[in-house]
């Protein structure tokens, strides 16, 4: 049984089809990349997965139960975690408190889990700094730390490497490899090098529909994908 699946998931914005009839399944333990040209509906799609956007039609199932009608916070409680495409941290709170908010919600051990999550993204020595004072790249890492600290079964990362320096991207790739053992990961990503390196499978969205799905090598060889995406990107 898949950890997460959708059937016929669609979203229209005032007659405009952002996502159309997407049926999608994610197996436990896999790292899936979701790619597609700008405006392909990737963020709308994951928005519907985690409850930020109400679908026009279709259902979302998580761990065997229909969660289509659940509000976002209930889905998070069920074991999802989501990191925002546009960095969204508590700017006027310390890094420690940012992560602690994530740990406290699942009634975890703040004293142990917060430093652990910060260490894994390389922000251990910045615990007391205000999140707003961090550089952009560090804020993105903090966001990932907040995702880790929730100990999710499914971690959804929306363009996590955007704005990171090359060395930070390398660390990020290593982190994803390490995380594989703990969580299922859905990664929206523009950086094809990262995708090819970490993903077990790739789903390509184009004009709100699934264009192709398969192993990285297959996707790379797929002519339609090349035409729609790789060719232009």
């Amino acid at each position: 049984m898949s950890l997460l699946s959708t059937s016929g998931l669609s979203k229209e914005f005032g007659g405009l089809r952002a996502v159309h009839d997407v049926s999608f399944a994610l197996e436990e333990g896999e790292v899936r990349a979701l790619i597609g040209p700008n405006g392909a509906g990737k963020t709308t799609f994951v928005g519907m997965l985690c409850g930020r956007i109400e679908p026009s039609a279709g259902t979302v199932r998580f761990d065997g139960t229909d969660i289509s009608r659940l509000p976002a916070h209930r889905r998070i409680r069920a074991g999802m975690a989501y990191t925002f495409q546009i960095t969204s941290v508590f700017a006027r709170l310390s890094c420690h408190e940012n992560v602690a908010l994530a740990v406290r919600r699942r009634k975890g051990n703040v004293a142990k889990d917060v430093p652990e999550a910060l260490r894994r993204v390389g922000l251990a020595d910045r615990a007391e700094q205000l999140a707003g004072d961090l550089s952009y790249g560090h804020q993105r890492l903090l966001e990932i730390a907040m995702g880790l600290a929730q100990k999710p079964r499914l971690l959804i990362l929306d363009e996590p490497t955007q704005g990171l320096a090359d060395s930070e991207i390398e660390d990020f790739v290593a982190l994803i490899r390490e995380l594989k053992a703990e969580a299922t990961i859905l990664l929206i990503e523009h950086n094809m090098a990262v995708v090819m390196e970490v993903a077990d499978a790739i789903t390509v969205l184009n004009f709100g529909e699934v264009l192709a799905e398969g192993a990285p090598a297959e996707i790379r060889a797929n002519r339609e994908v090349q035409a729609a995406y790789l060719g232009t990107g």
Binding site: H73, R77, V89, L101, R105, Q150
Partner: peptide, 21 residues
């Protein structure tokens, strides 16, 4: 109280940490 402060600072983020706003 800390969740209230989190809501004040960034309601969206607080919700996506699983808090019932």
């Amino acid at each position: 109280g800390k969740v209230l402060i989190a809501i004040r600072e960034n309601e969206d983020r607080a919700q996506m940490l699983g808090y019932d706003i």
